[in-house]
Design a protein around this nucleic acid. Structure first.
Lengths: 201, 201, 201, 201
DNA sequence: AGTTAAGCGAGACGGTACGTCGTGTCTTGTG
DNA sequence: CACAAGACACGACGTACCGTCTCGCTTAACT
């Protein structure tokens, strides 16, 4: 492997991203800003989150934020996306058991985070800002991954009829949980999950 | 000349309906304000709706608005609640058919209204404002009524096992639709509804 | 004198400024803002005077300032113009004596106010903002009034040749003082004034 | 090959003029910066002149500017001082004639340069920055030199009484012109100069 | 020829102030 | 009292500069 070429353009590779001129962005700023954003989200929710506040808390100038994110929503999206300690899906050999374990984890997660208002905020923003729309879709897809994986395995095992559209299946499993969380305010607990699985599977 | 009752008017007491002194509220203001609110919602969405704007458009002072609603969200909630031309549930004798017809109506309704961003806005507001939380729950419950009715009839007919929790059943039927609408951006059309019902019923 | 007419436009007089609708401006705000401006001018000079600072000090919102003055300079101009405890010109019968007394007062005045940097600031602003230009001219003319008066009296008395252009005469009397104050930093004291008058008169 | 002296170069010691190590400053940068400054002064005035703008226009980094001048005002001062194509005073044998010729040149000079706003800007800056104060005084003194010369010659010739304080005399001659230029906005033309000299001489 | 130390373009950084906008409250005169 | 009009305190917005600070290069003189 060739050592980094000092001449501006070695003809063959140039995989190295050609280093823009000028002082590079300080990675500590990124962390400080994202962390401050998450902290303030927990404390006051998306509605009470101001760029001024984040800047002050992160010990950073506002320009340093706007240099990185074009809008408050872009920042939010990256902030909540950044903590994606991706929940993972167990592989117990039974779809029902897989999902029960998975949703148990989800219940716990919801219990810790208070009434998350970030999602609704982003949903609204996505109505008007195409960029947010795209990022949100990406975020949702990422979150669905574990469920999709479990369903694919189950379909291969024959637990699910081959004709079933897995996309819809995901909606049927995840939709009710989100619906409770966002709209009805209903409890999201073990009995609810059991009944949900009883109906769907 | 019966004076207009300003309170919900419990029938028994208060025969002389406590006509408050001073000039009575002008009902035309209510209409003008709600109409202006709906117009501006259509044009710019909840995010771009300002009380100043509504007041100017309705030809009304801001105080006249705040005299009636305590906050922007309260106004929004009433504005979108006011057009509840309650969708009704047919009674065909078959739950499956009932729901197919009902959801067909819903599809059409969604098609007309553009990307409704009011709901997410209210969801967010509900996280912080208890009053909004209550009103939103009420609104959601009202919207669920037709589905609940159909399910109750079906359970009485024996189409649904008596042990099934109808609340959860509603979540399973409505949740996926809402989930698509708000989060995944997936299509909400006849095939989707068919597959949904195939899985759930 | 007719009592204030209540109908919007009594045809004849209408000297009363027809009272605009809505809440009237609060005169206390004007005072608070101007006073805060003057205080901050004394403390930090025109360069260190920010609208935010004035607003905070006056206990007033920024909008309340911008509602009254279109720019920082407009505010400054009115602030320094507002303290025009117009210096008055004595009438001793002798032009020389008149001016000596007058300039003595001016010396005292200059001694009290530190190095006034407001004037240069406004001069600069006047280069670009026509409105400021006009207001500044007005201000200067007002300041010249006493000297003009004395010169006119002297010309009528025959102390000054009739052919002399009094405008230029004013420039010759005031210009050197301003020049010292703004540019050379030379002392402005009794001996200087004496020598000045010796040369000019 | 005598290396260019970077320090004022006291003549005796330091014959080897202490060439500092490292890359020497690029003289082209000085020119580019000063030129860009003058250009932007003409276009937008001192108020609209930003260091960022000068740097961009001169094709130079900001550090390269701050390495040479400590502040914006220092740069301005040198920029306007740099074009001191010192006006010179003729020696016609008559003070009156000398001054008429000199002021004619000044009129022309003023006519070319638009409303010079640099001077007021520096005057203001001088109120707070001692360094600017000093440089400004120096600048003013330099500008006064021709007039001082003419007056000294005239006093030696006996055209001016020996008791006259020439410093004041300069103020009386120059002050009115500056006063018109900066404050009253009055015309500065031949008739004005004639009247001025009529009064003073 | 290598080392060293500064200059250089570019641009990120923490700040401060700008002028605008929206909120929810208040104060007028008029019905 | 209600109403239109609009002033008010507050606070966030996104932008523009300031003067400082890294970056990776370049440019000489001194080893």
């Amino acid at each position: 492997m060739a050592p980094p070429a000092t001449s501006p353009a070695s003809p063959t590779n140039d995989v190295r991203p050609t280093r823009r001129p000028g002082r590079p962005r300080d990675a500590r700023c990124d962390h400080a800003i994202l962390q401050a954003t998450l902290d303030m989200l927990v404390e006051g929710g998306a509605a009470n989150l101001s760029i001024d506040g984040v800047a002050a808390r992160a010990g950073v100038g506002k320009a340093t934020i706007y240099r990185r994110w074009s809008s408050r929503e872009a920042l939010l999206l990256e902030a909540i996306g950044s903590d994606t300690t991706m929940m993972d899906m167990p592989d117990t050999g039974s779809l029902r058991t897989d999902l029960e374990v998975y949703f148990d984890g989800l219940i716990e997660r919801f219990a810790k985070s208070g009434g998350s208002d970030v999602l609704p905020h982003l949903i609204e923003a996505a109505c008007y800002d195409a960029e947010v729309r795209g990022s949100l879709d990406e975020y949702v897809a990422k979150r669905q991954t574990p469920v999709r994986t479990a369903l694919q395995r189950a379909q291969q095992r024959g637990e699910i009829a081959p004709g079933i559209d897995l996309k819809v299946m995901i909606d049927v499993l995840v939709g009710p949980v989100i619906y409770r969380r966002l709209l009805t305010g209903g409890r999201i607990d073990r009995p609810f999950i059991r009944k949900l699985l009883d109906i769907v599977l």
